[in-house]
Design a protein around this nucleic acid. Structure first.
Lengths: 221, 221
DNA sequence: ACTTTACCGGCAGCCACTGCCAATAAAGCT
DNA sequence: AGCTTTATTGGCAGTGGCTGCCGGTAAAGT
């Protein structure tokens, strides 16, 4: 009765050897390394931080570091991805009866749900670094683009259009672009410190701009 | 009387040694290398193409190759930048009395002005490759973001707002996002060959989407 | 205990990329 | 025409990011 639940993949069927590390734990490990990497990047710069240093700081061998990350710069991904996921989660929770602006104003806060303020500070530090570190900027832009898929799913569900239609893709990309500009701005104005006022203003900016973009694009044809 | 004209830089003052290569010629050289690199990337993939191969194909030493490009993937930049510049030029030529949609419909053609059709084919090939080559995608996204500055200048001049204001940045980024999606789509549908019908449709898509984005965002406040 | 499966660390090596230096090209001056 | 000056080029050695490979070990089942 317990190994009958063969739904997909290899199901629960009793396996033989050592079980693979759970995705949960793997992501924890990646996030931990990410925090160390970002700190080192901020302290000494990306070029002056070696993979060996990151590995030592995180308490793993260099070999395993390269198993967890394909490049030095991609070490910042887990932290940034968490921040972006926070917005994706808010978007998914968008109730049908509400205008998007209202929902964002009520639910969107750039402080990560389960993470500490230190992570938010680190994320903004990375965004600030992307100004002078092209490799970091590239990694950041790649992450932002990946999030467009989720945006497209939600927007498609709302409008009834296909998630991979050009119209939906355009809306998702435009929304992502708005978030990028707003986040860059937030990173810039918080260089001297984060205040609740700047965060409030950021939420307001995002809510207003996203609404305008989506309204403009969905009034189509 | 002839070395008095010190306005800025070194002016016209008769210099002594070998003159530096003109930017014109340097860009020609970069473009030439770029064509070879893209061809090799398309034939064997990025990973299987070495810097030495690119250098040999372009007829320069490997050392000078690295002087012209900071990374292997950035060898695609000149070709892509030309294509993006074509749109920037169209945008700059936007006459005051015309709606943006009308202007784009009339003036925008993704065929490069002074370059051959082979270059357009190569550009679309690169965009197609970015689907499976993350490094190329990253380079592509970086170029697109750089073009946002020019977009912002033009849009700022139109609306009277500052080019680095959040509103203008949002418009420029959204416009860039629209172009990105439309270009990805064009690259996808032209995989089997370019027809004038697909190009016409592309122009139509871009004109319509850009207009909607800008209209939505500039009706602000 | 024994087998099986998966993660981990060390080692050797490839290659992208850089610093350094000698060689050469292209200009002006005498 | 030589000499001087400045800039580009190419070779060569070295660094470091990153990978393939392999043996050791952990965690499961039998």
């Amino acid at each position: 009765m317990d190994d009958v639940a063969i739904d997909r993949e290899q199901a629960v069927r009793p396996r033989r050897g050592r079980p693979p590390v759970s995705d949960r734990q793997r992501q924890r490990q990646r996030l931990d390394i990410s925090r160390h990497a970002v700190r080192l990047f901020a302290e000494h710069g990306v070029a002056a931080t070696s993979g060996e240093q990151i590995a030592r700081a995180a308490g793993v061998s260099e070999r395993t570091l390269w198993r967890y990350f394909r490049s030095k710069e991609s070490c910042v991904e887990p932290l940034l991805a968490n921040a972006i996921d926070a917005f994706r989660a808010v978007l998914r929770a968008w109730p049908a009866e509400l205008e998007l602006t209202e929902h964002l104003r009520a639910a969107y806060t750039p402080v990560l749900d389960s993470a500490s303020d230190a992570d938010l500070e680190a994320v903004l530090a990375v965004v600030r670094m992307t100004r002078d570190e092209p490799a970091l900027r590239a990694a950041y832009l790649m992450l932002r683009e990946r999030s467009e898929d989720t945006f497209a799913e939600v927007l498609a569900e709302r409008s009834g259009a296909a998630p991979d239609s050009v119209e939906i893709r355009v809306q998702a990309a435009a929304m992502s672009a708005v978030l990028k500009v707003a986040t860059d701005h937030l990173a810039h104005v918080t260089a001297a410190g984060i205040t609740s006022e700047t965060l409030r203003r950021h939420r307001e900016d995002v809510a207003a701009a996203v609404e305008l973009v989506i309204r403009g694009l969905s009034d189509n044809t």
